[in-house]
Design a protein around this nucleic acid. Structure first.
Lengths: 149, 149
DNA sequence: ATCTTTTGTAACTAAGTTGATTACATGTAC
DNA sequence: GTACATGTAATCAACTTAGTTACAAAAGAT
């Protein structure tokens, strides 16, 4: 039994490209441009962009090069990005085994007992993400140097 | 692109079997007994039991039927179980893409910028788990009826 | 109108994890 | 030594991820 597990990097990549679109707002942020900064395939970026667009975070148009932010930086929280990229389903960060034995007291009740505990833990995590905006992220990056790509 | 992701149910199953060991403390909690309540294979239980044993939460002995808790109920938090079953690696709940482009301001700094944010969110989640003990879980289940398996 | 560029998708792949399962070695008790 | 339980390796199907190829659809330039 191997022992690892991390949520998809789509979240980190989503933050990356949104921050880059902002810092490159004078230029054109095509999927190829963004991909070269993330170091991945442009199609990966376009699929992610579809999610961000659906969530109302970016504006992109077929045939027209470049994506733009659809909201102010300070109005986009990391939680917005997190929800947009679907790395976990609502209230399902932790899996609960299904079909426990209904003839056993524990089997019959375990799901209802732990579900609210799992949700509370997940919500606490999400609240932290809600308290950070892309503005915070962009400021932190901008402090490290000048845009050069 | 499909859109789901949940952490392993080992955590939920771990809580299930620890609660059951407690509620069945008069009887013998063999891997087969526990498996029938969880509704899974005894080998799955034994592998999980190995993790719980390694973490000092249960006592099990080769050749001897039955597992016992190694600590008081109130001294085992859900965070202890969570760590024992390795559903996430330390500070790696969220993946960060590696090899971003070092020639780009964002690529060069994104990892260092978001890592502490991700860790803070994870820690907030873990704090909630730390505040709940198996005693709370067992009491909740015991309130629902009498042990009957 | 056509050529070029870019976005939007579908389809496929390799790698990795999960949970179930079979098989069997090891250990304990009778 | 027989019976039974735990420990563990190996295998398997199902699923997700991230990368890739291929191509349709849309916009702009000439």
């Amino acid at each position: 039994m191997v022992l690892k597990m991390s949520l998809s990097s789509r979240f980190a990549v989503g933050i990356h490209i949104l921050a880059l679109i902002e810092l490159n707002k004078e230029g054109t942020s095509s999927s190829e441009f963004l991909a070269s900064s993330v170091n991945t395939n442009p199609v990966v970026i376009r699929k992610l962009m579809g999610m961000l667009k659906k969530a109302g975070l970016v504006e992109v148009h077929p045939g027209i090069a470049g994506a733009k932010l659809a909201k102010k930086l300070s109005d986009i929280s990391l939680f917005d990005v997190y929800k947009a990229v679907n790395i976990v389903q609502e209230n399902e960060l932790f899996s609960v085994h299904d079909n426990p034995n209904p003839n056993c007291l524990v089997g019959r009740n375990i799901q209802n007992t732990i579900e609210p505990l799992f949700v509370a833990a997940q919500v606490a995590m999400e609240k932290v993400l809600e308290g950070v905006t892309l503005e915070d992220v962009v400021k932190d990056i901008a402090d490290k140097g000048n845009m050069n790509c």
